[in-house]
Amino acid sequence: MLFGILVNEGPYQHQASDSAYLFAQAAIEEGHTIFRVFFYHDGVNNGTRLATPPQDDRHIPNRWSELAEKHNIDLVLCVAAAQRRGMVDPDEMKRNKKDADNIASKFRISGLGQLIEAGVQTDRLITFGD
């Protein structure tokens, strides 16, 4: 089955991103395909490469990057939500004249159309959040 995933909450504050990650991992193990993971609302904060959790805790952004690298998953942060919350990739840095970017490996920033497309193209779009 082709799955789309929507993550609506930030890392560490809320379990949504953990559950989404575990779901994605389990789905892949069962032979399913993840079309895209779309991060919206505070969910865009999952894409920061500047997070430094304690060493005995899971590294949520890195975990997503590694899963995406291994299974070629499209990780997309909503551009409007990202701009509000200071999530920046190199293109956005130039466009908005910022002095840095902070996006983690394998994440990209794009529009809400990517979420709608995931709804249209997949067999199931699963939402993680309140």
Binding site: Y40, H41, A80, A81, G111, L112, G113, L115, I116, E117, G119, V120
Partner: peptide, 19 residues
């Protein structure tokens, strides 16, 4: 919370997709 406001943004973008 921002949920309602950002939900509306999805609706507006989604409207272009003829669903």
């Amino acid at each position: 919370t921002i949920y309602a406001h950002e939900a509306l943004e999805v609706v507006l973008i989604g409207a272009a997709f003829d669903q």
